[in-house]
Design a protein around this nucleic acid. Structure first.
Lengths: 153, 153
DNA sequence: TATTGTTATACTCTATAACTATA
DNA sequence: TATAGTTATAGAGTATAACAATA
């Protein structure tokens, strides 16, 4: 009898551990954001708008690595929460612009503090050198694989 | 005028880069699995069954970090694909047992090869030492945070 | 009553594609 | 016609809770 060939185990893959830790970090962050009534994707959306003041949905979709349809739905939800305002572009009325409302502008710094706290909870025990090394490594892989858009989920 | 307080940026969080790379790795793996008609969660499910021969849904749920309801739905799909068989436990007829079908047993090694290939694509450019550091670091964080269950999404 | 597993409901994110209105 | 944005549909994952069968 030949038996079966031995297989690589789940835990031998770096992708496994990356996913395990990443899921835990994101899930923990999501629970913190929940208290402010916002999802992780909405946080990224709001944070990007905070810097640019005004942006077209299609450009935001590109930067967030989402489809225009997904951005549209996200914008609906944020509009319902009165966190963003939509306006038609006067020059080309096909185009719209998205901008934060004053309440959203006040909210984003609180959300940023939650992001800081979440990161500290998971990576605070690492040395500064380890954190810097980990960031460099991840950035390198992202660059090699041509990742340009923000992760949302 | 006071202006606004400066905020930490998205890219300053390790969680951001972790999510970015992890999403890319998982997405790439999902596309490979797609050719075999299987999702990432189904892969983990099948891979675990491969080792244990037989397992109760509730125990598998615990090991995969999913609810019993989610496992039930997953088992439905895998049953439809004729990859797993369900049977009632003779001793306690509330309990069921899950096991791979022969086709699934033949499939898992092919899926494992895809997992190996995907890992190599993303991490093959790292040195052996870097890979080992990264794994140790991720394992350490997982252990500190008490992560025991397998990541599925 | 408690437990095992299933089912129902609902929400988020994803992907594709049809649709509207402008140009 | 092409483009910007919206809407519809479907699939996958997650979470909660009600439910049936069994103990």
């Amino acid at each position: 009898m030949t038996g079966e060939a031995p297989l690589s185990e789940l835990e031998t893959h770096l992708g496994y551990w990356l996913r395990a830790v990443s899921n835990a970090v994101s899930h923990s962050f999501a629970r913190k954001l929940e208290a402010e009534g916002v999802t992780v994707a909405e946080w990224v959306f709001l944070r990007m708008l905070y810097d640019v003041e005004v942006i077209a949905p299609s450009l935001l979709a590109e930067r967030m690595g989402m489809t225009r349809g997904a951005i549209s739905k996200l914008a609906d939800r944020l509009g319902d929460k009165a966190l963003i305002a939509r306006a038609a572009n006067p020059d080309d009325r096909r185009g719209h612009s998205l901008a934060l409302t004053p309440p959203a502008r006040a909210l984003v710094p609180r959300l940023a503090a939650l992001a800081d706290r979440n990161d500290a909870e998971f990576f605070g025990a690492l040395s500064a050198q380890e954190r810097s090394w980990l960031e460099d490594l991840l950035r390198r892989i992202a660059r090699e694989r041509g990742l340009s858009s923000a992760p949302t989920d």
